[in-house]
Design a protein around this nucleic acid. Structure first.
Lengths: 237, 237
DNA sequence: ACAGTATTTATCCAACGGGTTAATTTCTCT
DNA sequence: AGAGAAATTAACCCGTTGGATAAATACTGT
């Protein structure tokens, strides 16, 4: 364990793994903030407290660095999802939890959204080269498929929806709102990221999906349940 | 009208408006294919059959060019939407038409999706400078608000949903599937862009939204309406 | 203590990319 | 015709950027 000798004032410390992590973290920031083409290798180095040469030494060139960041991002979300434990909830509650998790994960990890956008702009050119990523997803799809099947069997759900479609819908509802909040806020003239707006959005999404699956309108979905017109919904702008 | 004199073999033609249009079209291609930072001014010029200097002469620098493209893209979709004529349809049909239009528009204009992604990556930095764009959207929101109100009044819809939320949901369902089809196809191991997949997706989205609004499950939404389990839905991969 | 290796720094550079300058060609009006 | 304006071309400028080279510094085992 005695590793630090601290002989004298050293010009630098050695820490390969730490350095690699700092590089990947800095790269994640940079790539998500500026995209692939806009990212600057020097900025990544600076942010990681490293020399530019280190990037090439520890990870590889810009593209490899980018792919490493992307794989790490997928790994992180899928691994958190595995902990959701949807199997032991009754189906509507499981779906609600999946939506809430997805929403909160996207809120907590905006870089993930940016990275996906960037990669899709490149038509997944880099991701296609990854072998790791493909294998992470079948368990996840099965998890959702099981929930849907249980929901249909129990009578909670009206329809046996394709789990991939369902997940894409849930992710899409969350993703689009957040990843496009900048332009949407401009064109609709409201701040979509303040607390109230975010709460309303979550309620809307949960209501929409659960209403569609169960056939029963969900309380939160009804922004205004006035019996007749004049139900114009609380506005902001 | 007599404009062409064709005196002798000229070294070049004069055509200011045509040139401007070709430049904007080429820029749209380039920006949507490579993003803002990845776009190359020389490539735009080449694609427009022009000299690089022309871009600066007719439009401005790279950023102004980009903003012009973006404004043009918004203008185009909002103007097509105005022709939807939702006022004269009964509410569920109006919503269905809105979804189908949005879906088909996104399919027909993939550059629009890319441009939005790019601009959101930049947190709408450029769009905020635009004065034109902000004004295009209130009529559109009102159009949807009217449909929703009519649906609630007629009893077709269970809930008075916020029109902005509804539109963001519809756009999100379409947008995410298409703009992220590259990565989604990789991670889920199916081709999401073949004809069958696209048809299924449209059915899914229409079913989801209409079921949520009306409370009645929509035929197309039921991929398999088997009474018990084994309703595992037609799979692909 | 010393040889060999792993990690880090300090420079350098060739290609690229946005933007500019100045000259050339076409159009228009008189 | 021909002068002045508009449109287009060709060539250049110069900061940036990804990547490479080589030297310096720290660590490891023996």
């Amino acid at each position: 364990m005695a590793k630090a000798k601290a002989k004298r004032t050293l010009k630098w410390q050695r820490d390969p793994e730490g350095m690699r992590l700092r590089i990947l973290e800095a790269a994640k920031q940079e790539f998500s903030a500026h995209g692939l083409a806009g990212a600057r290798v020097d900025r990544i180095a600076a942010k990681a407290g490293a020399n530019k040469r280190m990037l090439y030494y520890h990870v590889g060139n810009k593209d490899e660095l980018y792919l490493a960041v992307l794989e790490g991002a997928y790994d992180k979300i899928r691994s958190e999802e595995r902990g959701l434990d949807l199997e032991h909830l009754d189906p509507p509650e499981a779906i609600r939890r999946l939506i809430e998790f997805t929403w909160n994960y996207f809120l907590r990890n905006p870089e993930f959204l940016s990275l996906l956008q960037t990669e899709n702009l490149a038509r997944a050119k880099h991701l296609k080269k990854s072998t790791k990523v493909k294998s992470m997803h079948s368990p996840f799809v099965e998890m959702i498929r099981t929930v849907v099947r249980r929901g249909v069997d129990s009578g909670d759900f009206q329809v046996a929806v394709d789990p991939v479609q369902l997940y894409i819908s849930i992710a899409g509802l969350c993703f689009f709102y957040l990843s496009n909040s900048a332009t949407l806020s401009v064109i609709f003239g409201r701040d979509l990221l303040d607390k109230k707006a975010k709460d309303e959005r979550l309620a809307h999404m949960v209501g929409l999906v659960l209403a569609a699956l169960t056939g029963q309108s969900v309380a939160l979905f009804e922004v205004a349940k006035a019996p007749k017109s004049r139900a114009a919904v609380a506005q902001t702008a």
